[in-house]
Design a protein around this nucleic acid. Structure first.
Lengths: 135, 135
DNA sequence: GTCATTTTTGCAATTCTATTGCATTTGCAT
DNA sequence: ATGCAAATGCAATAGAATTGCAAAAATGAC
């Protein structure tokens, strides 16, 4: 039996562990970027042997380091994560009522000019407001 | 003796208290947006009767509610604050080495289109990288 | 100025999110 | 199958922010 796609992807970057497998699997299915806590809850719902919270954090850090997952920082307090592969960078919408984060369609955003000597590594655009559900 | 400009400004919106006065005074002098902790430290350095940390948080919340101060969320973990009046909205640069936040020049940024039923309230663009000092 | 009312403050305790240390377990190359 | 580096679980800790409540301070009325 050939390994499933998630295992294949993970194996290209290093060890395949249960925590990484679940994290990537859940993020692939997610409709929105998820907080570590939401991801943990989803894993706990999916399997009785869900990884520890700390392990979820470490799995996410690893996935981000490998470029498989993106961390979205500009939200309320918790970080959010979304799959990076086959998913071009895009802005996000944070609903200030329900707290959910939505992906906005990819859009050519021009960065503002940087002062001399400044080097940009990444940029992030977050729009806050009310989503269709909460409006 | 006429009240100083900061007192005048605060009085237009409500009670003038020491914590609000110091918060607004320090933010006006600051070269970069400040975290509550940086603001607290600056106040403690400026006066032996500096307000409590909690009071700094509450003063900042109040100033934000009155529109005198802007909260910048998209950083590492701590929020940053900057004066809002006479200061058009602009993007920010977070140095991932020294942790300082810099203001970028105001720049026409076009927001991505929102899905039907979504209502934007504010948008925030954060660029991460290395500042001239750390590069 | 003094008093009464309402708003703020300080302090301690608590919440929330994330990180660290370390012994144990697991993945996987051999 | 086995050895060893890498990953995990658990408990403790850190950092940022919030909450409850009695004491203190700011304003408006006299």
């Amino acid at each position: 039996m050939p390994p499933d796609p998630i295992t294949q992807t993970l194996a290209r970057y290093g060890r395949v562990t249960a925590a990484r497998w679940w994290a990537l699997a859940i993020l692939r299915e997610a409709q929105q970027p998820l907080t570590p806590d939401e991801l943990f809850a989803a894993a706990a719902a999916a399997t009785p042997k869900a990884p520890d919270r700390v392990t979820v954090y470490r799995a996410l850090d690893w996935l981000v380091a490998k470029g498989l997952v993106r961390r979205i920082a500009a939200s309320d307090r918790a970080a959010r994560f979304e799959v990076a592969s086959n998913n071009p960078a895009h802005a996000h919408f944070l609903c200030t009522t329900c707290g959910r984060t939505w992906c906005l369609p990819p859009h050519p955003t021009q960065w503002p000019p940087l002062p001399d000597g400044f080097v940009a590594h990444e940029a992030e655009l977050v729009v806050r407001g009310q989503c269709a559900h909460c409006h």
